[in-house]
Design a protein around this nucleic acid. Structure first.
Length: 977
RNA sequence: GCGCGCUUAGCUCAGUGGAAGAGCACUUCCUUCACACGGAAGGGGUCGCAGGUUCAAGUCCUGCAGCGCGCACCA
């Protein structure tokens, strides 16, 4: 570092050290190293979508994880940060299909067929799947890349199938015809969590439905009026419902109504679901297109007429006039037709919430279809662990949200009508009902199921039917289960669930056909904390690193992912998957809007890294991200980070320029008040940072680092230390010629200088370590550049700052030895206070910053010349004359405190009117404060009840302000005229 | 409708019962041999509103208002 540049240039430094860390395998976790003395620390990454590009949310999230991981390493832990990606079923399939269409290769994925299309997706994954991983590396992420996992890896896929079959066997996974959330754009079912309610301005259309008379003839004089927000669904109406206690309509219940446009008689039914106070109290019932209506239809055994198809277009059932129209077109057409028929009573403006697909943002269509559902396992354990504090959430208010959701669990629709994903491991076949093979298979499965239950409840499993391959995982050895799906005529339709490749092939040879659906991506990522570590084997990694320590994720996936992982963890590991969950805020733009591609308000983190450096991006982001609050991102924050790195760089450069070897022996006898002051500030900073880490308050840690390093170390200590550094220089230009000869004064100055360098080295080497989790690259560069790694054991920083030991607060013995008491700190503080006022004179009297001034100091007590020299330097004064019996000329500006009185004699130069104004302002302030404190102390309630420390502090404060007031009055009296 | 956040300097936000803070922006001065990605000094706040608890409230409690976010089958 002999010729270090004036400004820090991050690019080369960052790539160099990342390469070094990889080559030296610094990120690799070894379960064998875990011991009582070296505890494990683990995080699994929230797997980003394999289609994804790094965005600011990833930056926030992964910077936090990296900070935690690096801090844990410095704490001497064996750290596993396990990376990977998920396959993101809908998003990836959509991107690939869109790309192929854009390239003109296909018009629809059907043109290729399932197998060929999947080949294309894999090709695409091979080409683009690593992008986000490489981007994470640019950020400095210290993941154990050798353990990178992908949710579609063969082993991982096997875990997904295994879990599916297990839950199927337990009866928790079932297939059923249900009303599901259908995304007509992606053409797949979604889970409830994937539906976003959006407040939408719409209308409430009021339709008249004619009553039928006894001969089923429509009456022209009697109608029921229904209101709807979705006129197009009326084509599928099967009833009109009223509340059974609604006396306006009880006489009509059981009568028939003519459904207009379809000219179909439908009944008027009574159901408790109907709110008699809303609208007319009559509700049209569309069994196949509304979840509430569906329930009513089941109760009243109504038919299910499907008028909207899976593509969001009207079906032939909707009638010739409407078939093939889109939902929107059909809405207009129905309204027009009703109006023409004179059955449109009125249209009201209406604001209501409409479910939209979180994926494609189109309105969700409630759709009746066959899907796979899961009744969640291990609900009680999952709910309890958060409620009783076994697992902690940061901030903990999310615990309440979690608990509410856990208390209202509804079965999870896990099947998706996609090709990209884990295909449902179920095969079906129709066989003659008389076929005995299937009966035998089923009976065997039943026996096993019973024994599984027995074993789970503490009973013994028989030896003929060893159920558990591994009792730890709780998944039984039997890989195939059969169930009757349905019977028709002489045939029985069977289904078989298996995770055995061999079984599956055997079944297919027998003519069994696999279910076409794939599983929700979250059905694979809920296994992430253990499926990535070799489950169901009892691997060393699982033994060492499960449960993981911390999870860092966004609150937007608390249900999608966090809650489900907890349930899966209990079900398959018998233990929680992580001990702490840190929920980040959401990154927004300056206007507070969410970052989104369509708004184009999402900055590219890679561009920011190129411009400012990864450390700058990390520091800026962390500094502006308080725990659990959303972050309004501003590029200024990154600029601040860069400036900070530059400051750090130059502070080290300054030390380099002082020359000399690393000084590690500090002589207590030679410590100045400034030395003691900065050492105590360092101690305080370490304590604050430790405290911040304990509460996951990273922004607080960065604030402390910033204040300590910039305001305390650079602004005060470094400037003050220049006194000792300059006077002790062997090449001091002010030395008289011939000063080479042994000179006791010069030797003493040189010793003081060396001691100052030792303090600087002590502080800087601590500072670099405190900064390392936040600024990994620049700290590593400086660690080596400053030679602080020399002489350290290889596993304690000799090799990399990553392994350097985390600084400890200074222990009492150390403080005692070096005399770091409060008095020492107070001397320095008083010095800086005096300097502050002295500097203010320049502004008050319009004296240019570079103008050489001569001050006079009238010390209150004993003030060594070295201290005076520090004050001179800090004031940028030409001279300070120490004068114990000084009588200032009238009107000389003066500042005073415990240290003494500082005068700026400027005969004839100062504007006494301005000085009077200044002093009067000061006086006003002092009197105000005296008044405030005196009032408090005058209150007996206060003096009697307050803790002694507070009382003492107030008493002192009063004395201070009174002294100040007196001094200002003196100065005022001294003014000319 | 229920629940949860937020409201402090022009802007973005810290502030965990005992003298209102930071960064940016602004004003003035300074290229003094670490740093102009810098240094020095300064201006700027009845802490959303109204009550209450307390010797003491930005901080705790109760209302209210505005903004934001969850959850919820009112067509």
């Amino acid at each position: 570092m002999s010729e270090i540049p004036k400004a820090y240039e991050p690019q080369a430094v960052e790539s160099k050290w990342y390469q070094y860390w990889l080559e030296q395998k610094c990120f690799a976790a070894d379960p064998a190293r875990v011991s009582a003395k070296r505890p494990a620390y683990s995080i699994v990454i929230p797997p980003p979508n394999v289609t994804g590009m790094l965005h600011m949310g990833h930056v926030l999230n992964n910077t936090i994880q990296d900070i935690l991981a690096r801090k844990a390493r410095m704490d001497g832990k064996e750290v596993l940060w396990l990376p990977g990606t998920d396959h993101a079923g809908i998003a990836t399939q959509a991107v690939v299909e869109k790309t192929l269409i854009k390239q003109g290769q296909i018009r629809h994925r059907d043109d290729l067929g399932r197998d060929k299309f999947l080949e294309k997706v894999w090709e695409w994954k091979a080409k683009h799947g690593d992008i986000i991983i490489e981007q994470l590396k640019k950020l400095g992420a210290s993941c154990d890349w050798g353990r990178e996992r992908f949710t579609m890896d063969p082993e991982y896929s096997k875990c997904v199938q295994r879990v599916f079959v297990d839950l199927y066997r337990k009866g928790l996974i079932y297939r059923g015809k249900r009303m599901v959330n259908w995304d007509p754009s992606a053409r797949t079912a979604l889970s409830d969590e994937e539906v976003e309610m959006i407040e939408t301005k719409g209308h409430l259309w009021h339709f008249k439905y004619p009553l039928l008379d006894d001969q089923d003839r429509p009456r022209t004089d009697a109608f029921v009026v229904v209101a709807t927000t979705r006129p197009e669904t009326m084509l599928g109406d099967e009833a009109v419902a009223v509340n059974p206690r609604d006396e306006r309509y009880t006489h009509l219940v059981g009568r028939r109504i003519l459904l207009p446009l379809q000219n179909k008689p439908i009944p008027l039914i009574a159901d408790d679901l109907v709110d008699p106070t809303f609208g007319t109290g009559c509700v049209k019932v569309t069994p196949a297109h509304d979840p509430a209506d569906y329930e009513m239809a089941v109760r009243h055994k109504l038919p299910f007429t499907v008028v909207i198809g899976p593509d969001g277009r009207m079906t032939p059932e909707a009638g010739a006039a409407f078939a093939t129209l889109t939902r929107d077109q059909a809405r207009k057409a129905v309204v027009a037709a009703m109006e023409q028929a004179g059955l449109l009573l009125k249209i009201e403006d209406y604001v209501h919430n409409v479910g939209h697909s979180q994926r494609s943002h189109v309105p969700i269509e409630p759709y009746l279809s066959e899907q796979w559902f899961l009744r969640y396992p291990s609900q009680a354990a999952a709910r309890a662990c958060v409620a009783d504090g076994t697992m902690q959430f940061f901030p903990d208010r999310w615990a309440k949200v979690f608990d509410h959701w856990m208390g209202n669990l509804r079965d999870w629709c896990i099947s998706r009508q996609l090709w990209w994903g884990h295909r449902v491991p179920v095969w079906t076949r129709r066989v003659p009902t008389t076929d005995t093979t299937m009966r035998m298979r089923r009976d065997r499965a039943r026996v096993c199921a019973t024994l599984v239950e027995l074993a789970r409840n503490g009973g013994a499993a028989s030896e003929e039917c060893p159920l558990f391959e591994d009792s730890w995982s709780g998944v039984e050895d039997h890989r195939t289960f059969w169930r009757v799906r349905g019977e028709s005529g002489t045939d029985t339709e069977w289904e078989a669930a298996t995770f055995s490749e061999l079984e599956a092939r055997a079944l297919e040879a027998e003519g069994w056909v696999q279910d076409p659906d794939v599983l929700d991506t979250w059905f694979s990522s809920w296994l992430w904390p253990f499926a990535t570590m070799g489950w169901p084997e009892r691997t060393p990694a699982l033994e060492a690193f499960y449960p993981t320590t911390d999870l860092v994720t966004g609150p937007d996936i608390i249900f999608f992912w966090v809650a489900r992982m907890i349930m899966a963890g209990y079900e398959y590991m018998g233990d929680l998957p992580f001990r702490n969950v840190y929920f980040t805020g959401i990154i927004r733009d300056k206007q507070g809007r969410k970052m989104s591609k369509s708004l184009g308000n999402s900055p590219d983190p890679l561009a920011l890294i190129a411009r400012y450096g990864a450390d700058a991006l990390r520091f800026g982001t962390m500094r502006s991200a308080p725990l659990g609050q959303d972050v309004l991102f501003d590029e200024k924050d990154v600029e601040l980070g860069r400036n900070f790195c530059n400051k750090l760089w130059n502070a080290c450069r300054f030390r380099q320029m002082q020359g000399g070897a690393i000084e590690d022996e500090i002589d207590p006898a030679l410590l100045t008040s400034d030395d003691k002051w900065i050492l105590r500030r360092l101690d305080r900073a370490i304590r604050e940072i430790d405290d911040a880490f304990a509460g996951y308050r990273f922004n607080e840690a960065t604030a402390t680092l910033y204040r300590f390093f910039w305001s305390e170390y650079c602004d005060w200590y470094v400037e003050a230390s220049k006194a000792a550094l300059q006077s002790g220089r062997s090449d001091n230009p002010s030395d008289p010629p011939g000063a080479r000869a042994p000179d006791p004064d010069a030797a003493a100055a040189a010793r003081r200088r060396a001691n100052t360098l030792a303090v600087i080295d002590f502080v800087l080497s601590h500072t670099l370590r405190l900064f390392h989790p936040f600024l990994p690259f620049i700290t590593e560069e400086l660690w080596h550049g400053m030679n602080y790694h020399a002489d350290l054991p290889i596993d304690q920083g000799g090799h990399t700052i990553m392994d350097a030991r985390w600084p400890k607060p200074l222990d009492p013995a150390f403080c005692e030895h070096y005399g770091l008491d409060e008095t020492a700190e107070q001397v320095a503080s008083a010095k800086y206070e005096l300097v502050g006022v002295g500097r203010n004179f320049r502004r008050e009297f319009n004296l240019a910053s570079n103008r050489k001034l001569q001050f006079v100091l009238k010390p209150a007590g004993d003030l060594p010349p070295a201290e005076v020299e520090v004050i001179r330097l800090l004031l940028n004064a030409e001279t300070i004359e120490v004068h114990r019996a000084y009588t200032p000329p009238k009107g000389t500006p003066m500042a005073a405190n415990a240290l003494g009185e500082l005068y700026l004699p400027l005969a004839g130069l100062i504007d006494s009117a301005a000085e009077r104004a200044r002093l009067e302002k000061e006086l006003e302030k002092a009197r105000l404060e005296v008044g405030k404190v005196a009032a408090k102390l005058g209150n007996p309630q206060f003096t009697q009840r307050v803790p002694p420390a507070v009382l003492e502090e107030h008493t002192k404060r009063l004395a201070d302000w009174q002294a100040k007031e007196k001094q200002i009055l003196t100065s005022l009296n001294n003014l000319p005229e």
